[in-house]
Amino acid sequence: MSDHKTPHPEEQRLLAGDPETTGHSWDGIKEFNNPLPRWWLWTFYATIVWGIAYTVMYPAWPLINGATPGILGFSTRANVAADIERFDAMNADIRTRLTEVELAAITLDAHPDLYNYAIQGGAAVFATWCSQCHGAGAAGVQAAGYPNLLDDDWLWGGTVDEIHFTISHGIRNADDPDARYSEMPAFGDLLGDADIAAVVQYLRNVSGQAADVTLAAAGEAVYLENCAACHLDDGAGDRFLGAPNLTDAIWLYGGSEAAIEHSVRFARFGVMPPWSAQASSAGRLSEDQLRAVSIYVHSLGGGE
């Protein structure tokens, strides 16, 4: 404050021409001496000691192949491995019980702990092993014939036991003798173009899509003679043979005229590997993982 009679000591010394300066002077500008606190200096030294100790204790100095390991033996990789082991040990009991309880009895009401574990664990198994074909959201890929697992239409059965069997043994593979198996003939070799065109219109008609009614009527005879053996007279399909229901709104490979004609002419042969390590040498999943992913798929909205 300019109206103070007694200025701050620093100011007094400055006015007296004797300020406490560092003695440095640049073009007449002097530097006040405002030394840092000494404890600050000690803190600085302490951080240096800490830094050196840290690099001795923990992995630090980069070498050609890796880094100095540190005398504490600290390793994030080992920590993760220990965490995984710890969680495995914690889950050992629930995983055993998951394989012992009757599969269909594992529901939210009857066994909430098993059910919740299966949903969470099954989601992880699905994301790791199933999502490559069926998609992360389990909606499948129609263009490639990977089935949508969310809807209420099942080729081989939608109970949790049927789902478990399908996942365990797979579909149309040579690795597992119990794999789901059926094969549709390529009717391009057996039927003329006119018959194929007629049966395509018949299938469009019975599935409720726009169709040429005249051709469809002609196609019914072709259907009953060639297709009904597997897909049944009413077109509802046969899960025992994995023969799809042809009358509903869901088409594995698409319901357009072109897609249906392609299916009839060249047939389809969708495959799925066996996942059970017990049932097949090609399998990769343990029984508790199979059960978990079966319960997970069953819970996605289409389970029967």
């Binding site: 992360a136 949508n148 809807d151 239409d153 709104a249 909205g301």
Partner: peptide
Amino acid sequence: PVRNPQFVVLSDGSIRNT
């Protein structure tokens, strides 16, 4: 809303969102 997929077609042609 579960948006993968946006909707699911059920066998009777109805549309389901999750």
